[in-house]
Amino acid sequence: MGVEQKLGNLGVVTTTLEKAVNWSRTGAMWPMLFGLACCAIEMMSAQSADYDLSRFGMELMRPSPRQSDLMIVAGRVSRKMAPVLRRLYDQMPDPKWVIAMGDCCSCGGVFNNYAIVPGVDEIVPVDVYIAGCPPRPEGLIHGILTLHEKVRGETLKDWA
């Protein structure tokens, strides 16, 4: 659809275009403020001066899903919060990515009971999982850089 149809398969032009688009997407990916629990505090620490996130263009945490590209699910997702999470994910415009920060949203973490969703990938598709309880701010930054690598490998068709 869209760009690929119009340009056809022009080879070099589309790959250079992809590179440019992906580079600009990784340059300033705005995260949505979705800190739920303890991992949110480490996310705030990553935001602050010692481990700076603004060198990745991420100093603005947009509270509104309509203005953000990246949802960093930081913390445990309870069954009451799950519909809210899905609704916010649906409200984010394409292209969007999800990082599951911490053990609780990757796999349920320490908790294995009626109240916690065991893994946020049951609710939204996750691109990068970051392990740790809570992961160090360097861990979060490593996860973000992994996501950037993944984005650089994307083609235009993924989000067109």
Partner: peptide, 11 residues
Amino acid sequence: IGFLHTGIEKN
């Protein structure tokens, strides 16, 4: 409230 209920007491 209850959006962060973790069932810690039962666990």
